[in-house]
Every structure is written in structure tokens, then in C-alpha cells.
Amino acid sequence: MLKFKFLLWVLTKLLQRAIRNNPECAKYVRGKRLIFQIRTIGGVGRYFTIENGAVNSVAGITKTPNFTMSFRDAARGFATLSAKDGKEAFLAALHKEDLTISGDFVEVMWFQGLTEYLQPSKKQEH
């Protein structure tokens, strides 16, 4: 469970760094207001606020998120969130019902776009 909690805290730091260091990412979040949470079914989690071009998070659960990602347990959440093949891992977790997503799916898709800025840049070689 500690690895899951730590990973959620690190996600905040990675998003903050992406916004700070990547002008395209900063532009992507500019003007956006979003509250979402990543948690376990048992209630362990963290909620994230994107507002005024910044990302912040707080340990715990909020009652009013725009969307929630709920993992069956901390171990499955950690495995999915830290997988090298992120999209495939998410799809597999959804298929196995290790992950459920509730709330505004338009915002979920927006967040998916934000996570693209966490990927190493793919520079094409000629």
C-alpha cells in the first residue's frame, strides 16, 4: 500500500515538472479546472486539483471529483500505474475489472492527453 501512495504522490511531482518545463504542457492545462481522484475500492487514495495552470494533490478522498479511477486494491493500482506499457495496462485492468472509472469521461480523456506529457519525448532520427 505504501508503494501505491508513494506513486500517487510522485505523479503530482511529475505533472508539476511537466507543466514547469514543457510550454506545450503548460498551454494544455492553462484555464483548466478539474478535480479527480485515484483510489482503491477500500478508500486509500489521493485527489488532484488542476487549476490556474497548476497541479496540486492531497492524500485522501474528495466527495466531489469530476472523475474517479478506483482500483481493486493497492497492489493492482501500483502495477497498472507503473507499467511500462501504460495504455495497454489500463485497458487490461479495465477488462479484468481491476479498475473502474466513474464520472465525466470527457474529463478522463482530457487527463489521458495530459499524461502524454509524462512520456519521454520521441525524437525522430533521420
Rank of each mutant, 00 (worst) to 15 (best):
G60I: 03
E97M: 06
L15Q: 05
I101L: 05
V58A: 11
H95I: 03
L99M: 12
F90T: 12
L34S: 07
Y117E: 04
G45V: 02
A92V: 12
D104A: 11
R30E: 09
Y47G: 02
L118Q: 01
T40R: 05
K3L: 15
T80P: 00
T80V: 11
W110H: 06
E24I: 04
G103C: 02
L118K: 04
G113H: 07
A18G: 01
A89I: 00
N21K: 07
T49C: 04
F4T: 00
K123G: 10
F105I: 15
Q124R: 07
T40N: 07
Y28G: 06
L7W: 05
F71N: 09
R72N: 13
K63R: 14
V44R: 04
G113F: 02
G43E: 01
I35R: 00
R46C: 05
Y117D: 02
K84M: 14
T100A: 10
L118S: 00
A79P: 02
F6E: 15
L81N: 06
K123A: 12
Y47E: 03
I61Y: 04
F78M: 02
R72Y: 14
F71M: 09
N22V: 11
Q16M: 08
R72W: 11
G60D: 06
K27T: 10
K5F: 06
A83W: 04
L8D: 00
S57A: 14
R30G: 12
T62A: 08
A83L: 08
M109G: 12
L91R: 09
W110L: 06
L11W: 09
S121H: 10
L11E: 09
L15M: 08
Y47T: 01
K13T: 13
G42E: 06
F48D: 01
V108T: 13
V29T: 03
V29M: 03
A74W: 00
K96M: 13
L94H: 05
F36H: 11
F36V: 12
A89G: 01
G31A: 06
C25N: 01
K32A: 01
K27H: 13
E51V: 14
K123C: 02
M1A: 15
V44S: 05
T40W: 03
N22T: 08
L2H: 14
I35E: 05
L91A: 11
K122D: 10
T68Q: 08
G45A: 10
K3R: 15
I41Q: 07
L7T: 14
E24V: 07
K32T: 02
S121E: 14
G77W: 01
G42L: 05
T12Y: 02
Q16Y: 08
Q37N: 12
V108Y: 03
L14F: 07
K3C: 12
S102I: 14
T12D: 07
L81S: 03
T100S: 11
V108C: 11
N66R: 04
N21W: 01
G86R: 03
